[in-house]
Computed example of a mutant assay.
Amino acid sequence: RREHLIMKMLQVENYIEAYLKSYQDYKTEWNYEDGCILIGAEALYKATKDKKYLEFILNYLDKRIDKNGKIADLNPVEYNIDNINSGRVLFTAFKETNNIKYEKATESVKYLLNIHPRTLEGNFWHKGRYPYQVWLDGLYMAQPFLTIYSNEKNDENGIKDVLNQFRNVRKNLFCDDKKLYFHGFDETKTMNWADKETGRSKNFWARAVGWYAMALVDVIEGIDNVVFKSYKDELVKLYVELMEGIVKYQDESGLWYQVMALEGKEGNYLETSATLMFAYSLLKGVRLNLIDKIYLEKGRKAFDGVVTNNLKEKAGKLELGNICIMAGLNGLIPFNGDRDGSFEYYISEKVGSNDPKGVGPLFKAYSEIILLGDKGGN
């Protein structure tokens, strides 16, 4: 069994190397999909100290950031919460190079948050085109950056802001019955996917829950200033509660279904990106001593399940398959049909391979396996 596990880990390493070597930027403008890969590479750099990962990040940033820290093609009045995500790697870029342009670029990203519109309760809108909407995805896009920034600047108001946004999401989107979070909340309660009384969407989309799980564990790690311990402790409680909820829905294969809590429904499928997000969140929580060691086995099972079932060779190249390419909810402007939050909608979205939203979490989960010293298994 040990030899089998080592072979699987070699397969993962070969895939990561080939993927980064041939990586084509997702879009020309600053975007969160590239950020998924950058943050994954950053996690691998921190776990291995291998400079190739840092070089990948710096090569990407240097194409987009001038010497004054201005980020090309960044439109501040788009009010797009996704644009914060890639900014996380700027802290590492500055620490490793001391190049002031990266520090200036973090201020460019922070400015986007300063002007970003908010719900009446104080949460960032998902985007300008989704007014008064909060999606779980957006917590991952913005909160880790805001946490690292506020922690470094010793800014208590910034950390309070982070905690308040998580508190609101717990209040508005947590389902006590299922112990899971609904995908989105519409403060106006007017969208066709929103419950007219609660403003909640109808279903538990696994990747949305995965974004949220990663947001929590990354924010917790990002608070190392002892002054903020009480805030951190409250976030740890939210994280532990969520981990207890998600493991109830893990399939025997180790994977999770695209729509959680409807596992037996026809058309539902075991989805890669969410599973890797949960694997990462579980493994990291064990490493940080936030959850019991029994969760290590569940995190490993999730990672191994993806590698066994969905990392396959096709035409001489490894492919990470069964990734939901995109899903969302309706906003003011229609987007690719009716994103009405129904089960039928979530299973209708395109499924593909090698998408950054699955590959980035693979990098992150593998970095935790390295840090846990668990590459060969027991």
Rank of each mutant, 00 (worst) to 15 (best):
A327M: 07
A315C: 11
G264A: 14
N310E: 14
T308I: 13
K265A: 12
T308N: 12
C324V: 09
L311R: 01
E252C: 08
E297M: 10
A274R: 00
T308L: 14
N289C: 10
F335S: 12
E271M: 05
E319D: 11
K301P: 06
E266A: 12
C324G: 08
P334I: 03
N268W: 06
N289T: 09
D251F: 12
I291C: 02
A302I: 03
L329T: 07
K314T: 13
L276H: 00
L282W: 00
F303Y: 07
A327I: 08
K317Y: 12
Q258S: 07
T275R: 02
Y295K: 01
M260S: 05
L290Y: 08
M326P: 10
G285L: 02
N309M: 13
L262W: 13
F278Y: 04
I294M: 14
G264F: 09
G299M: 02
L329M: 08
L329F: 04
D292F: 01
G299H: 02
D304A: 12
E266D: 13
N330I: 05
G305W: 04
G264P: 10
R287G: 04
F278L: 03
R287A: 04
M260K: 03
A315Y: 14
P334R: 04
N309Q: 13
K314I: 15
A302R: 04
L262T: 14
L311K: 04
F278P: 00
K284Y: 07
E313T: 08
F278E: 00
G316F: 01
